[in-house]
Each structure stands twice: as structure tokens, then as C-alpha cells.
Design a protein around this nucleic acid. Structure first.
Lengths: 228, 228
DNA sequence: TCCTATATACTCGGCTGCGAGTATTTGGTA
DNA sequence: TACCAAATACTCGCAGCCGAGTATATAGGA
């Protein structure tokens, strides 16, 4: 909201680092350890490669700076970083934007759904059944998780992100289930437009193939090379 | 399901290309045009840079091959690609996996939620209100879209992906709304654990700063700025 | 005492992804 | 007829991202 300027980077890991340094100065490995301790890795993807790259970026933008370099014995040096004033502004600003303004993302399942007609409907039915099973298991695991939190009397704030994840998974479950029953109801039916659509694909494809030769060996065509 | 081998690439655009070539041979620009025509760009991110990179990857794996190179006048050559037998197997296999097995993804909002305590709760309330407004508008647009589809008597299959998007947006709306009311109910209250958590952050921070020098220019106060 | 497994703390090279740029043709209009 | 804008069809270079690898220190068991 505050500004619509493009941020110098978009990795959620950068955000997490800013937050950690907002609490106190740290060195990279400690950041990773802390994130794991708090199970942030479940909502924010963490890996070593990116960690150090992202720190580099943050340094470049002067959002963080080197506080000190520790040397103990012969171990590699530990570089401790801290948040700068600019960094704190960026952090708060970024958080504000993320909370206030949804951004379109591109989950794989959405892509798959939009290309669904390449699969025969009967197969989609059994694939969706598998999916439903897996989603249900995920939901159960979430509940289990939540139960533990309640037992330990942790305030809700600690588990907000998994609550969100559960809600989204639930929605996906419902969607898949509805889709499944619809498919079952008029399997192969006309109303879905499926068979018609598939026929088109097939027509296009087999037509092309036929023009070229009897079910090609692998590639009889003009360009036979693979890689120059 | 079929196999758990890692695919040589993960870009949804690659999947879309395989599907397009499954229908008929095409040249890159035509792929882009077709995708836009069918509004696939709303569920699969498209941009020129990636398009050509991804085609390179598919070639390398022998999932597609060059069918012919057209030359018309002095225009740049058009390279027409087609699906190989291997490519078709990959396509179907990949689709099966995507439909049957959910994968954990990392939406930005989930990251933000997991770091929410850096913002004062009163601010989160107003940010969520903005978000709810925007989400509602998105939902209305979806409905409008859907109405048009029904008017044109398009079969449901054509708009499945936007139905999915709507469902997910709806879920996010509900989650945000519930969170908002909870925040309003015990604003600043103890039960949420928020104030406590924030205090910790603050403590850590100001402690660190104090050691270093007199409260830096822009950020001396505990939290006096708001949002103009 | 020695050996191995694990934790600590990064480094490095390469692939992926992308936006901005390039060059030609077509269409409209003044 | 001349000119400009839009469409066509890519090319390029660089930054982001990541996973596998490296190297030391410590702990625990045989």
C-alpha cells in the first residue's frame, strides 16, 4: 500500500531474515537454526544457498550491516549481522503490503486444472480420489498439530500460519470433492464439454501425426538433430 | 504417483507448452498468442524470456523437436516445434502427478502471517480491513466472469481453473475475516499472546541498540509512528 | 585411544527466469 | 505517399536461486 515501488528482491527468506535481525543481531547459521526451532521452515522455504545470497542482497541495499566478526579457534569466522534503520523501515513497509494486498500466485494445481482435458475423465476420477486421500491425511496432521499446541497452552498467535494452511487445504479438499462428484455424475457426458474437447485435441494430434507418416518411430521429420 | 523421480524442470510454462504441442505443432509466438487467447495466462505465468528458455530445456530433454523452420521474406525465421513420443509420456505422467499429489507451496501471505507480531495489532486490524475489501472485489470479478461464461453457454470445463481460484480466494477471505474479528475482540488482550510476544521483540531490540550508541535517528521511540 | 557420526558454518558453480531491448512488417491515416 | 504506431518474432545478459560440496570441531561408543 504505502508505495507501489518494486522491491529490490522478493524472496520470503529476506523477510524472515529482517524479522530475525529485528529481534537481535545474529550470524547466518544462527538464523537458520532459529527458523527451524520455531518451525518457520514450514511457511517459509529455507535453504543454505539462498540464505547467503539473500544476506548479500540485503547488505547491498543497506538493510542490514555487519556488526562484528567473531573468531573462535580455528573455526571459520562467524559474521554477525544487524538491522539498519533503513532495513527496519523496509521490513515494516513490506509487511504492511503483504498483509493488506493480495497478490496473484500460480499454484501448480491451478495450472493442472486448466489443462485437465489432456487426461481421460475416468483417469481424472481416480487421480482425484488419491488426492482427496492425501489431503485428508494432511488435514488430520494439522489437527494433531493443533491439539498439541492447545495442550501446551500456546497462544493462538504461534500457530496462525498453520491455521491458514489448514483453511486453504480444507478449501482445496472441498473443491476437489465437488469436482469429483460432478465428474462421476456425468462421466463421459456431454454437458461437461469434456469429451468434445478431448475429441478436438485428438483430432488435431492424430491429424498431424497422420500427415507425417505411420505412427512415427521417433522422428522421421526434416530436422532430425537433437542438439547442435 | 507413477514415479517419484525429480523432473528435469518445474516451470508450469513447460507443462503448458507440452499441452499446446500435444494439440498441434506450433512456433513459440503462436504458443504465447494461443495461451493468451484462451486466458491461460491467468493460471499460468507467461513471459517471453521464460518461453524461449523453457523451449530450450524441452529440446534438451527431447520432449519436443524442431518440425520445420519457416522463412517468409526477410522476417526472422519461425521455428515450428512438435511433441515427441517421450514428450507425450512426460506430459501425461506429469499431469497425473499434479492432479493426484498435492505439493506444499509457499504463498507470501502465509509467510507474512507467520511473522505478524512485528506489526502492532491495531495496525494489523486496519491492514486486514483493506485486504478484505480487495478480496471481495476479486470475488465479485470472478462472479462477473462466471456470469459471462454461463451467458455464452460455455461448458464448465472451460472455467474450472477460475472456479478453483474463486474457491481459494473465498477461503482466504473467510480466514482473514475470522482473524480480524478475533483481533478486534481482544485487541491488546493477553489471551492472544500478542503483546507479550511483541514485548519480547522490543526488549531484544532496544537492548541491542543501546549497546551500540544513542538511539539512532529514525527509530528512537518504542513505536510512535503510525501511518499517515 | 581411535574412529565415526553429527553439528557447525559456510562456498561455489551452474542453471533458471526474466525484463528490456531489437528488428522487421503491417495497418491506418493525413 | 509518407509517416507513425502496433503487431510480429525473438535475443541477450544478468541476477536470483539452489543443491551439493567443503572443512573443522565435538561427542559418543568400541
Amino acid at each position: 500500500m504505502t508505495d507501489r515501488l518494486k522491491r529490490p528482491f522478493s524472496n520470503p527468506l529476506a523477510l524472515a531474515i529482517l524479522v530475525l535481525l529485528y529481534e537481535r543481531p545474529m550470524h547466518p547459521y544462527e538464523m537458520a537454526a532459529t527458523m527451524r526451532e520455531r518451525h518457520k521452515e514450514s511457511s517459509i522455504k529455507l535453504n543454505y544457498g539462498s540464505l547467503y545470497t539473500v544476506i548479500e542482497q540485503l547488505l547491498r541495499e543497506h538493510f542490514i550491516s555487519v556488526r562484528e566478526v567473531l573468531k573462535e579457534g580455528k573455526r571459520p569466522e562467524k559474521t554477525v549481522y544487524e538491522l539498519t534503520a533503513t532495513g527496519e523501515v523496509e521490513l515494516v513497509d513490506w509487511m504492511r503490503e503483504l498483509v493488506s494486498s493480495p497478490v496473484k500466485e500460480y499454484p501448480m494445481f491451478e495450472a493442472a486444472i486448466s489443462l485437465l482435458p489432456v487426461l481421460p475423465p475416468e483417469e481424472v476420477i481416480s487421480l482425484l480420489e488419491i488426492r482427496l486421500g492425501l489431503l485428508q491425511r494432511t488435514l488430520q496432521e494439522c489437527d494433531e498439530e493443533e491439539r498439541k499446541c492447545r495442550e501446551m497452552k500456546l497462544p493462538r498467535l504461534f500457530s496462525l500460519e498453520s491455521e491458514y494452511f489448514r483453511a486453504m487445504t480444507q478449501a482445496e479438499y472441498k473443491f476437489s470433492k465437488d469436482l469429483l462428484s460432478d465428474l462421476k455424475r456425468d462421466a463421459g457426458g456431454m454437458r461437461s464439454g469434456w469429451s468434445e474437447m478431448r475429441r478436438q485435441h485428438m483430432a488435431g494430434k492424430s491429424g498431424a501425426r497422420r500427415k507425417q507418416g505411420p505412427a512415427t518411430a521417433i522422428r522421421k521429420s526434416k530436422k532430425k538433430e537433437g542438439k547442435p
